[in-house]
Design a binder for these strands. Structure first.
Length: 253
DNA sequence: ATGGTAGTTCAACTA
Protein backbone atom coordinates (compact mmCIF):
# COMPACT_ATOMS: atom_id res chain seq x y z
CA UNK A 1 0.00 0.00 0.00
CA UNK A 2 1.20 3.52 -0.81
CA UNK A 3 -0.07 5.96 1.82
CA UNK A 4 0.55 9.72 1.78
CA UNK A 5 -0.18 12.90 3.73
CA UNK A 6 -0.32 16.48 2.46
CA UNK A 7 -1.45 19.75 4.00
CA UNK A 8 -2.96 21.36 0.89
CA UNK A 9 -3.78 24.80 2.41
CA UNK A 10 -7.20 25.21 0.74
CA UNK A 11 -8.50 22.36 -1.41
CA UNK A 12 -10.40 24.95 -3.42
CA UNK A 13 -7.16 26.55 -4.62
CA UNK A 14 -5.08 23.34 -4.67
CA UNK A 15 -7.52 20.90 -6.33
CA UNK A 16 -5.61 20.87 -9.68
CA UNK A 17 -2.32 20.16 -7.86
CA UNK A 18 -3.91 17.39 -5.80
CA UNK A 19 -5.49 15.72 -8.84
CA UNK A 20 -2.21 15.93 -10.78
CA UNK A 21 -0.30 14.43 -7.87
CA UNK A 22 -2.79 11.55 -7.53
CA UNK A 23 -2.37 10.80 -11.24
CA UNK A 24 1.43 10.72 -11.11
CA UNK A 25 2.13 9.30 -7.62
CA UNK A 26 -0.82 6.87 -7.69
CA UNK A 27 -1.12 6.50 -3.89
CA UNK A 28 -3.68 4.04 -2.56
CA UNK A 29 -4.54 6.51 0.20
CA UNK A 30 -3.97 10.26 0.54
CA UNK A 31 -4.78 12.07 3.79
CA UNK A 32 -5.15 15.83 3.37
CA UNK A 33 -5.41 18.69 5.85
CA UNK A 34 -6.54 22.32 5.74
CA UNK A 35 -9.21 21.73 3.12
CA UNK A 36 -10.98 24.91 4.39
CA UNK A 37 -14.25 23.67 2.90
CA UNK A 38 -17.66 22.88 4.35
CA UNK A 39 -18.77 19.33 3.51
CA UNK A 40 -21.38 20.55 1.00
CA UNK A 41 -18.60 22.05 -1.13
CA UNK A 42 -16.23 19.05 -1.09
CA UNK A 43 -15.35 18.20 -4.74
CA UNK A 44 -16.33 14.50 -4.57
CA UNK A 45 -16.88 14.13 -8.33
CA UNK A 46 -13.34 15.21 -9.26
CA UNK A 47 -11.91 12.40 -7.11
CA UNK A 48 -14.48 9.86 -8.30
CA UNK A 49 -13.36 10.52 -11.89
CA UNK A 50 -9.88 9.32 -10.91
CA UNK A 51 -11.30 6.26 -9.17
CA UNK A 52 -10.98 7.51 -5.59
CA UNK A 53 -13.50 7.40 -2.76
CA UNK A 54 -13.52 10.23 -0.21
CA UNK A 55 -14.49 10.83 3.41
CA UNK A 56 -14.27 14.37 4.74
CA UNK A 57 -14.82 16.52 7.78
CA UNK A 58 -14.75 20.23 7.05
CA UNK A 59 -15.76 23.66 8.20
CA UNK A 60 -15.76 27.17 6.79
CA UNK A 61 -12.46 29.12 6.48
CA UNK A 62 -10.21 27.01 8.73
CA UNK A 63 -9.02 23.43 9.29
CA UNK A 64 -10.80 20.55 7.52
CA UNK A 65 -9.45 17.02 6.90
CA UNK A 66 -10.22 14.28 4.38
CA UNK A 67 -9.21 10.76 3.39
CA UNK A 68 -8.96 9.92 -0.32
CA UNK A 69 -8.73 6.19 -1.07
CA UNK A 70 -8.89 3.74 -3.97
CA UNK A 71 -10.42 1.12 -1.66
CA UNK A 72 -13.46 1.56 0.60
CA UNK A 73 -12.99 3.49 3.84
CA UNK A 74 -14.85 1.68 6.63
CA UNK A 75 -15.90 2.55 10.19
CA UNK A 76 -15.29 6.27 9.59
CA UNK A 77 -15.21 8.52 12.65
CA UNK A 78 -14.87 12.30 12.86
CA UNK A 79 -13.51 14.54 15.60
CA UNK A 80 -12.04 14.11 19.06
CA UNK A 81 -13.98 13.83 22.30
CA UNK A 82 -13.00 16.98 24.18
CA UNK A 83 -14.62 18.53 27.20
CA UNK A 84 -14.90 22.28 27.32
CA UNK A 85 -13.01 22.83 24.09
CA UNK A 86 -14.30 24.31 20.85
CA UNK A 87 -14.83 21.55 18.29
CA UNK A 88 -12.61 22.04 15.24
CA UNK A 89 -12.39 19.76 12.20
CA UNK A 90 -8.96 18.27 12.83
CA UNK A 91 -9.38 14.48 12.91
CA UNK A 92 -10.89 11.90 10.58
CA UNK A 93 -10.15 8.19 10.78
CA UNK A 94 -11.23 4.94 9.20
CA UNK A 95 -10.19 1.42 8.21
CA UNK A 96 -8.76 0.70 4.76
CA UNK A 97 -7.75 -2.86 3.86
CA UNK A 98 -7.51 -3.70 7.57
CA UNK A 99 -5.26 -0.72 8.36
CA UNK A 100 -6.50 1.97 10.75
CA UNK A 101 -5.85 5.38 9.17
CA UNK A 102 -5.91 8.31 11.61
CA UNK A 103 -5.59 11.63 9.78
CA UNK A 104 -4.79 14.62 12.02
CA UNK A 105 -4.31 18.34 11.67
CA UNK A 106 -2.69 19.10 15.01
CA UNK A 107 -3.13 22.76 16.04
CA UNK A 108 -0.28 25.08 15.06
CA UNK A 109 -0.15 26.81 18.46
CA UNK A 110 0.93 30.18 17.01
CA UNK A 111 3.38 31.12 19.77
CA UNK A 112 4.81 29.38 22.83
CA UNK A 113 2.84 30.44 25.90
CA UNK A 114 -0.18 31.74 23.98
CA UNK A 115 -3.77 30.51 24.40
CA UNK A 116 -3.47 28.71 21.06
CA UNK A 117 -0.34 26.97 22.36
CA UNK A 118 -2.29 25.74 25.40
CA UNK A 119 -5.02 24.54 23.03
CA UNK A 120 -2.40 22.64 21.01
CA UNK A 121 -1.07 20.88 24.12
CA UNK A 122 -4.57 20.07 25.33
CA UNK A 123 -5.53 18.73 21.88
CA UNK A 124 -2.44 16.49 21.96
CA UNK A 125 -3.52 15.23 25.42
CA UNK A 126 -6.89 14.25 24.02
CA UNK A 127 -5.33 12.61 20.97
CA UNK A 128 -3.02 10.63 23.26
CA UNK A 129 -5.99 9.44 25.33
CA UNK A 130 -7.69 8.45 22.08
CA UNK A 131 -4.74 6.43 20.77
CA UNK A 132 -4.55 4.72 24.16
CA UNK A 133 -7.90 3.07 23.43
CA UNK A 134 -6.30 1.12 20.55
CA UNK A 135 -4.06 -1.94 20.58
CA UNK A 136 -0.48 -1.40 19.37
CA UNK A 137 -0.54 -4.91 17.86
CA UNK A 138 -2.99 -3.58 15.26
CA UNK A 139 -1.76 -1.95 12.00
CA UNK A 140 -2.27 1.77 12.66
CA UNK A 141 -1.03 4.82 10.75
CA UNK A 142 -1.23 8.16 12.56
CA UNK A 143 -0.48 10.69 9.87
CA UNK A 144 -0.94 14.32 9.01
CA UNK A 145 0.32 17.80 9.82
CA UNK A 146 1.69 17.37 13.35
CA UNK A 147 3.01 20.94 13.53
CA UNK A 148 5.99 19.60 15.54
CA UNK A 149 9.56 19.00 14.37
CA UNK A 150 10.56 15.98 16.49
CA UNK A 151 14.31 16.68 16.70
CA UNK A 152 16.97 19.29 15.96
CA UNK A 153 17.83 17.65 12.62
CA UNK A 154 14.24 18.37 11.54
CA UNK A 155 14.66 22.16 11.49
CA UNK A 156 16.83 24.42 9.33
CA UNK A 157 18.53 26.03 12.32
CA UNK A 158 18.10 24.48 15.79
CA UNK A 159 19.87 27.40 17.50
CA UNK A 160 17.79 30.16 15.91
CA UNK A 161 14.53 28.24 16.37
CA UNK A 162 15.27 26.86 19.84
CA UNK A 163 12.25 27.02 22.13
CA UNK A 164 9.96 28.44 19.46
CA UNK A 165 6.68 27.02 18.15
CA UNK A 166 6.90 23.51 16.62
CA UNK A 167 10.33 23.05 18.22
CA UNK A 168 9.82 23.65 21.96
CA UNK A 169 10.76 20.92 24.43
CA UNK A 170 7.22 20.79 25.82
CA UNK A 171 5.79 20.08 22.36
CA UNK A 172 8.46 17.46 21.68
CA UNK A 173 7.81 15.80 25.05
CA UNK A 174 4.10 15.70 24.29
CA UNK A 175 4.79 14.08 20.93
CA UNK A 176 7.27 11.58 22.42
CA UNK A 177 4.40 9.98 24.38
CA UNK A 178 3.11 8.64 21.06
CA UNK A 179 6.53 7.08 20.42
CA UNK A 180 6.51 5.64 23.95
CA UNK A 181 3.07 4.16 23.29
CA UNK A 182 4.36 2.25 20.27
CA UNK A 183 4.31 4.45 17.18
CA UNK A 184 7.37 4.76 14.93
CA UNK A 185 8.34 7.73 12.75
CA UNK A 186 8.33 5.89 9.41
CA UNK A 187 10.41 8.51 7.58
CA UNK A 188 13.15 8.42 10.24
CA UNK A 189 13.14 4.61 10.29
CA UNK A 190 14.35 4.59 6.69
CA UNK A 191 16.09 7.98 6.23
CA UNK A 192 18.83 9.16 8.57
CA UNK A 193 20.04 12.31 6.82
CA UNK A 194 19.20 15.61 8.58
CA UNK A 195 17.29 18.58 7.15
CA UNK A 196 14.66 16.70 5.15
CA UNK A 197 11.79 19.18 5.30
CA UNK A 198 8.06 19.05 4.54
CA UNK A 199 7.09 22.68 5.21
CA UNK A 200 8.59 26.04 4.24
CA UNK A 201 7.00 29.37 5.20
CA UNK A 202 5.70 31.39 2.26
CA UNK A 203 7.57 34.38 3.67
CA UNK A 204 11.24 35.35 3.40
CA UNK A 205 11.80 33.15 0.31
CA UNK A 206 12.04 30.27 2.78
CA UNK A 207 11.71 27.51 0.18
CA UNK A 208 14.44 28.91 -2.08
CA UNK A 209 16.72 29.24 0.98
CA UNK A 210 15.61 25.84 2.35
CA UNK A 211 14.49 27.35 5.67
CA UNK A 212 12.20 24.41 6.42
CA UNK A 213 10.81 22.13 9.10
CA UNK A 214 9.87 18.43 9.04
CA UNK A 215 6.42 18.64 10.63
CA UNK A 216 4.30 16.33 8.42
CA UNK A 217 4.56 12.74 9.56
CA UNK A 218 3.40 9.16 9.17
CA UNK A 219 3.81 7.33 12.48
CA UNK A 220 3.03 3.61 12.42
CA UNK A 221 2.68 0.65 14.76
CA UNK A 222 5.00 -2.37 14.62
CA UNK A 223 2.92 -4.43 12.15
CA UNK A 224 3.27 -1.61 9.59
CA UNK A 225 6.89 -0.80 10.47
CA UNK A 226 7.95 -4.41 9.93
CA UNK A 227 6.67 -4.32 6.34
CA UNK A 228 7.92 -0.80 5.40
CA UNK A 229 9.51 -0.72 1.95
CA UNK A 230 10.24 3.01 1.59
CA UNK A 231 9.39 6.44 2.99
CA UNK A 232 9.95 9.69 1.13
CA UNK A 233 9.18 13.38 0.79
CA UNK A 234 8.09 14.53 -2.68
CA UNK A 235 9.29 18.12 -3.08
CA UNK A 236 7.97 18.49 -6.64
CA UNK A 237 4.55 19.98 -5.74
CA UNK A 238 6.25 22.68 -3.62
CA UNK A 239 8.04 23.91 -6.77
CA UNK A 240 4.84 24.52 -8.77
CA UNK A 241 3.11 27.87 -9.34
CA UNK A 242 0.84 28.75 -6.38
CA UNK A 243 1.97 25.80 -4.24
CA UNK A 244 0.82 24.76 -0.80
CA UNK A 245 3.39 25.69 1.82
CA UNK A 246 3.62 21.93 2.62
CA UNK A 247 4.69 19.10 0.33
CA UNK A 248 3.55 15.42 0.34
CA UNK A 249 5.12 12.71 2.51
CA UNK A 250 4.55 9.05 1.58
CA UNK A 251 5.32 5.48 2.59
CA UNK A 252 5.04 2.14 0.87
CA UNK A 253 4.46 -0.98 2.95
C1' DA B 1 10.17 43.11 18.45
C1' DT B 2 8.69 43.09 13.70
C1' DG B 3 8.28 41.76 9.10
C1' DG B 4 7.91 38.98 5.25
C1' DT B 5 3.40 35.80 2.02
C1' DA B 6 -0.84 33.20 1.30
C1' DG B 7 -5.88 31.97 2.02
C1' DT B 8 -10.40 33.33 3.46
C1' DT B 9 -13.01 37.12 3.54
C1' DC B 10 -13.47 41.92 3.03
C1' DA B 11 -10.69 43.85 8.42
C1' DA B 12 -8.83 40.57 10.59
C1' DC B 13 -7.47 36.24 11.55
C1' DT B 14 -4.64 32.00 10.93
C1' DA B 15 -0.60 29.90 9.53
Amino acid sequence: MILATWNVNSLNVRLPHVLDWLKTAQPDVLAIQETKLIDEKFPKAAFAELGYMVEFYGEKTYNGVAIISKKPIENVSRGLIQQGMPQQCRLIEGEIDGVHIMNVYIPNGQEVGSQKYEYKLSWLDHLHEHINTFSKTKPICLLGDFNIAPADEDVYDPIETRGTIMVSEVERASLSRFRDWGLHDSFRELNKEPKQFTWWDYRMAAFRRNLGYRIDHIWVTEPVKSTLKRAWIDKAPRKLEKPSDHTPVAIEF
